[in-house]
Design a protein around this nucleic acid. Sequence first.
DNA 1: ATGTCACTCAACCAAATGGTTGAATAAGAC
DNA 2: GTCTTATTCAACCATTTGGTTGAGTGACAT
Lengths: 117, 117
Amino acid sequence: MAAYAQMGTDLDTVFAALADPTRRAILSLLLEDDMAVTDVAEPFEISLAAISKHLAILTRAGLISQEKRGRVKWCKLEPDALREASVWMQGFGQFEPVNLDAFERFLANELDGEETT
Amino acid sequence: MAAYAQMGTDLDTVFAALADPTRRAILSLLLEDDMAVTDVAEPFEISLAAISKHLAILTRAGLISQEKRGRVKWCKLEPDALREASVWMQGFGQFEPVNLDAFERFLANELDGEETT
DNA sequence: ATGTCACTCAACCAAATGGTTGAATAAGAC
DNA sequence: GTCTTATTCAACCATTTGGTTGAGTGACAT
């Protein structure tokens, strides 16, 4: 009987953005360095337009920012946007503080950026 | 030119599950106690069938488990499933270790479970 | 000025999502 | 056995999502 009026918070957009493997891979790329849209797109098999859409979604979620310098648009990781979501998640568990090692293993696994030849 | 063959990892399902406000609210409910499906559904305005679907999604994501005892199916939070995702996220930032206070404020905000009268 | 490079827009498509209702199943209660 | 409670299933619907292609725009190169 309670209201539970659920407005769409930032968490909606952030988690939705993170739910796509391509977008997570993009974030991983940007973890290394800022990149132009074309360069972000290069490792993927999908069209540039599709990547452009993914980047728009990441931007709307605040996970990256895009700045146009000349004719190239630079994409930059904005890790602050994750803080809110991270805080939310940590409330559900007694997770070990950081465990960067596990994260490294994870990236190696998910990125899977080896040449297949 | 690299492959970037992206298999759907657990992260896909976990983040997708977390992207819905109803499902996050369900998790918050279960944070307090294990509950039967009907009781989970009670605070929401949507149909029981809809809640049942949400619970199935949360189960597939491993975020909760469901055990049928008699004719009622008990739902139990499984916070371990969040660990993987939490680790992934923390790799993207220098987030403060836990900050439970911020989380409390968050819950208060998102749950919004007050009677509106 | 003409071309080319970097990127987005628009229209379209198939599949997935979140919801509905009504019937089906399964277990207790009487 | 019959009724009711707990939950899911099935069919359906509207909207969103992730992708495509082809045309459009804006900035640099020659």
